[in-house]
Design a protein around this nucleic acid. Sequence first.
DNA 1: AATATATCCAACCGCACAGAT
DNA 2: CATCTGTGCGGTTGGATATAT
Length: 286
Amino acid sequence: MGPSSCCKNAGLKKGPWTLEEDRKLLSYIKDRDHGSWGALPAKAGLERCGKSCRLRWINYLRPDIKRGKFSSGEEHTIIQLHALLGNRWSAIANYLPGRTDNEIKNYWNTHVKKKLAKAGIDPATHKPVNLALGSSETHQLKSSTNLDHMAQWESARLEAEAHLARQSKLSAFSASAPPQFLMPGLVTMSDSMFSSNSIGLGEVGDSTELASESFSKPIEMLTSFASWVPVVPILNDLREEPSIRRSTKVESCIGGEHMEESTNCWDHVVDPVTSLTVSFSYPQLN
DNA sequence: AATATATCCAACCGCACAGAT
DNA sequence: CATCTGTGCGGTTGGATATAT
């Protein structure tokens, strides 16, 4: 069943919230937490459905909401998280303290998609448009050679999703402490990285075809990685997983002299199958 | 100044899932 | 096990505002 129990009720107000409604909702929640959203409207004296109250609280009234424009760091983070997680806005929002899933989703749809498209990158796949269309035979060949890797990554991705779900639950219980970024040892970024097209190999644990052959050009590596780079949040978990453990070494390939607030940007991705550490970056998006 | 068009974003809708009964 | 209820998520919409003509 859905939320229809509250939304079906005729006569409930819809549309933009008034100041008075905001005040009622705020003062109710301030005094006693929201409790059951279904029961809240009647108790708070609001002629809204509980779902509407919840949305208003989460997206607008919550005290820890960060307002204002997204910084370039936040934008980079969104792009990279989107490459990892797809349209899972709530999961992405977990890594951007003070930003809501709705806000990120809106920002993606109104700004980022256009920027990526302008830069020749398909926002859905994070691949350059010509490659996303599969116009290159070479690319197809290389794609097929990586199928095994991708299959393994897919299983890792599923684990990552489960992990994210757990993280979401945990962070919900620590609202007073905004979620911290969860990839110790993994993350360094600088804006200078985003201004280049360079994508280079970092530490390579095993010599693999993936490392030595498959990607003769940086952009090809990016396009391959972009479609299957999902495991960063559980990297540490994966290291402990016997079936995929390798002599993985994670290290920064970036100078790191210029770290802005978005230390959660993931320039470095480690493939748990091949033990590669890879850094990648998007072209400058303006 | 008036109108048309584009852009933004708050809010709604429908669905899926988990837990309770 | 089936059903109900509450919650959360992602996609979409529509009104407000900005910009272009």
